[in-house]
Design a protein around this nucleic acid. Structure first.
Lengths: 197, 197
DNA sequence: CACCAATAGCAACTACAGTTGCTATAAGAT
DNA sequence: ATCTTATAGCAACTGTAGTTGCTATTGGTG
């Protein structure tokens, strides 16, 4: 239909020049403030000020605090997940769970999870974010299957969820502490259940 | 030391007359608004208006929204926990988990859990609240032990946490749905693990 | 049935989060 | 180089959340 297909109709007008720098600085400022004063106390004008950016700029891109913080969550990239290869499923799993626990103890992460409760993230994005994260960690399971520690039928997603959810539960909901000993138990439990399947 | 021990020094001046009615009405108004517009959109002045109470009254008792909502959580009484006696551990557990899932799907409960993340509840109160809730549900486990379905050594708290945390995880964190089938699996898994202990 | 302390209502205020319309700038296209 | 469009900055404004000092009720006490 369109003869000049080379430059389509699609508004590819979304460069990464100045805009990118603004986004980066605002994100950074938000992360800092969140860890310093906590979600509740963070104010968009403050974020703007710290980012060295005008208030309006922030408001136009992120109408609410929730939106900004949720955006932060989605921007959480890998480099804080996979983890070392310890040689055993238990070792890998424990290492991963320790990371999870550490992350969940930070005000930043708590704020991000919270923001996602406000519906500032469309359901689809939220689901795919967590799916992606799970997927990244599933190397652990794949390795275990290759080693023969788990049956071929093992479902990575389910195992990881099984092992990790009590940590989320305690750290985010009840506020109870999670010890390394607990983590060991959670990991063992999940492994046993998976082997039985 | 104090001769007139009959009317101590303690400011027992905290009757339950008018004050109680105010508290009740504000709580009610808050609950309604939370379910209608969601945590983020609830504003203390609105709550006051709906409760037919002056703004100042609300602000003086609950300085922030978090405080009010957290208070709501602590006020969550039993009558929505124990549950029917189905005759089997699995049946009881599944019934309980279904209740949990249902509760967690309400904006009200989500708001309350969220507020507890803001540190508006002192850690002690938060812990004892959840401990109490767990304790209430532990009849299920006790009955199972009596029936011989579980060893004497069974730890109610641990079993309940094991079975329930994936539900919290999905409904509060990832946003994934929880089906009745999932609930059945969670319950079975927890029971098997407990029997093995 | 006065008295007293606690707490609710009222009213006036203020500070500042969030909005809006306009101008300036910088990136991409030609 | 020039034109165009998206996006940032600026400045002035507005609504209202949250505060404060004072008065009015109310419920317990002797």
């Amino acid at each position: 239909m369109d003869p000049a297909r080379s430059h389509e109709r699609v508004p590819i007008r979304r460069p990464g020049g100045r805009a990118a720098s603004v986004v980066a600085r605002v994100h950074q400022a938000a992360r800092e403030l969140l860890t310093e004063v906590g979600y509740e106390a963070v104010q968009l004008p403050d974020v703007a000020a710290r980012a060295g950016v005008n208030k309006t700029t922030v408001y136009r891109r992120w109408p609410t605090k929730s939106d900004l913080v949720a955006d932060l969550l989605l921007g959480l990239s890998d480099h804080d997940l996979p983890r070392a290869d310890t040689g055993s499923l238990l070792g890998d799993l424990v290492a991963m769970l320790k990371d999870v626990a550490e992350l969940l103890r930070t005000p930043l992460m708590q704020a991000m999870v919270r923001a996602s409760l406000d519906g500032s993230i469309d359901q689809e994005a939220r689901l795919s974010f967590w799916a992606e994260r799970m997927h990244r960690s599933s190397v652990i399971i794949e390795r275990a299957v290759r080693r023969g520690e788990l049956p071929e039928s093992a479902d990575a997603r389910s195992i990881l969820e099984h092992a990790a959810s009590p940590i989320y539960f305690r750290l985010l909901v009840t506020g109870e502490p999670v010890t390394d000993h607990d983590i060991g138990r959670f990991a063992e439990r999940a492994i046993e259940a998976a082997q039985r399947a």
